[in-house]
Design a protein around this nucleic acid. Structure first.
Length: 471
RNA sequence: GGUGGAGUGGCCGAGAGGAUAGGCAGCGGCCUGCAAAGCCGUCCACACGGGUUCGAAUCCCGUCUCCACCUCCA
């Protein structure tokens, strides 16, 4: 029952051996809150939510840190022509991200640090790099501090690139860099930028470069060495390469394993603003139930590219309904019997084996769907013992995947005041329909069924009576 | 130019030397007053060309196509 994961650095599936037995520390690159979240952002957060849930199920105490980068060039640029302050803009988008995560049932991370709250840790890290000879303040008067890539022999190790093979940066402004491939650790304050986006530092007032915040926050909260670093595949270079370089060059061993989630494409291409093909979280969550969105984004293997196509959500909805229908069906059948509520929540071995193997969710879902077929067959055969046992398995498997429709946040238990009134009216109509059916007045019976269907209420005639549910 | 990834049945999507992945859609049957739901069966695919092997979707060689990254990116 060793959990295995694909480590991007070694390019192989390896056993997860935590630094501290029974505990796993994960740092995930969260968003730069410069615009609204799209479905790729949701997928990324969902992937680490699934990792966290599975590792927790396996008994690990998981510390999941997912940062918010709330200061960078684009945030300042977006707010520049606006009356809105950059920090207000960043926070507004941060709230949008949070809303998207919550809607999908993504559990809050253990901590969600903002970059602007760790400026001191960044200074400390930059100073160590300067002291070690791996960073230098720019020779011009910019106040910039750069990482010296040429001084770090293993630069490029994460993505297996040689410095010499890299395309020279098309970066318009090499400013005070010794080499175009050097990257900014600290950016000197410019007169055009707001004072509120400037922090004092040993090298003059300014703000952090991109990358340094993640190194600083990862070590601040998880230690100079920790278990897993995650993020989107597109962050491998330069972001993660630079994080690795600056942290290790400063003497921090940093992450033991690097995990990268696949991206969400549209029509075979990555979403991008220039192509205008992004699907934003808010609109996506309007087009289907959030549970369906979670199922859809979570059902592919986490390292695969998801290529979104029309109809994908309809298919996900159908698959999910199969799960929901079974659970509803089995609970109704067991209700009032001595097996009501029974069925120990046991995860089948085949499911666990799949999840242990680099989070093979697609195979785990195959186990889930097989269980549902067996469960339905058991119900058809009136084998309540088997039905209850399988019910428990389905309950447990969907729970660990965060798609158990009977549990929060998906449960729509009829707790509203209107529910009993609705039930009474529907049951009255069902009684009328039964009377009509007994009298073989099927036209009248079907009229009632159609009428209920028009109101979104589905009927299910079983040997044990007619069940109804809201579609 | 460099570094990775991918091409699987009508669609989605796993697998990685020898059994049925799974879902959706379709078809046939059972059940039903008829439906719906459910069950059973069916649909036997792996970009192309060679090769290795008793056996290849899976390994090797070559070819084609697509995607991502190379200092904005989840």
């Amino acid at each position: 029952m060793t959990v295995r994961l694909y480590d991007s650095r070694s390019q192989s599936v390896v056993d997860l051996v935590p630094l501290v037995e029974g505990e796993v520390g994960i740092y995930v690159c969260g968003p730069t809150v410069q615009s609204s979240p799209h479905i790729g952002h949701l997928r990324s957060a969902l992937v680490y939510d699934l990792w966290r849930r599975w590792l927790s199920y396996r008994g690990y105490r998981v510390t999941l840190v997912r940062n918010v980068t709330d200061i960078d060039d684009k945030i300042l640029a977006s707010a520049a022509d606006d009356p809105e302050q950059w920090w207000a803009l960043a926070y507004r988008f941060e709230l949008e991200f949070s809303a998207g995560y919550t809607a999908l049932g993504i559990q809050a991370p253990t901590y969600e640090p903002r970059a602007t709250a760790s400026i001191g840790q960044m200074h400390e890290l930059i100073q160590r790099l300067i002291d070690a000879g791996h960073a230098y303040p720019a020779a011009d008067a910019s106040g910039d501090v750069y990482f010296d890539t040429a001084s770090w022999p293993t630069y490029g190790e994460l993505t297996r690139q040689k410095l010499a093979d890299m395309e020279p940066a098309a970066d318009a402004d090499p400013r005070g860099k010794r080499d175009p491939r050097d990257f900014a650790l600290w950016k000197g304050h410019k007169p055009t930028e707001p004072e509120s986006a400037s922090w004092g530092s040993p090298w003059g007032a300014g703000r952090p470069g991109w990358h340094i915040e993640c190194s600083a926050m990862a070590s601040r909260y998880l230690g100079s060495r920790f278990d897993i670093h995650g993020g989107g595949l597109d962050l491998r270079f330069p972001h993660h390469e630079n994080e690795l370089a600056q942290s290790t060059a400063a003497g921090d061993p940093f992450a033991n394993y690097w995990v990268h989630n696949g991206l969400v494409n549209i029509g075979g291409q990555k979403m991008s603003k220039s192509l205008g093909n992004s699907i934003y979280a808010a609109e996506f969550l309007q087009s289907a139930r959030p549970l369906v969105v979670r199922y859809y984004l979570g059902s592919a293997h986490y390292r695969s590219t998801i290529d979104y196509h029309d109809g994908a959500l309809v298919e996900a909805e159908a698959a999910l309904e199969r799960i929901e229908t079974f659970l509803t069906r089995v609970d109704r059948r067991l209700e009032g019997t001595d097996r009501a509520g029974s069925g120990a929540p046991v995860i089948p071995d085949a499911f666990a084996a799949a999840m242990d193997d680099d989070l093979a969710v697609p195979q785990a879902l195959a186990v889930l769907h097989d269980a549902i077929r067996s469960g339905n067959a058991a119900l058809d055969a009136d084998d309540l013992e088997a039905a209850a046992r399988i019910r428990g398995q389905v309950f447990a498997m969907t729970d660990v995947l965060g798609i158990n429709p009977l549990l929060a946040p998906w449960s729509t238990a009829a707790t509203s005041e209107a529910a009993p009134a609705l039930a009474r009216l529907v049951e009255r109509l069902l009684a009328d329909r039964d009377t009509a059916r007994e009298a073989k007045d099927f036209a009248a019976a079907d009229r009632i069924r159609d009428e209920l269907a028009g109101a979104g209420i589905q009927l299910d005639d079983t040997p044990h009576g007619t069940q109804w549910s809201i579609a």
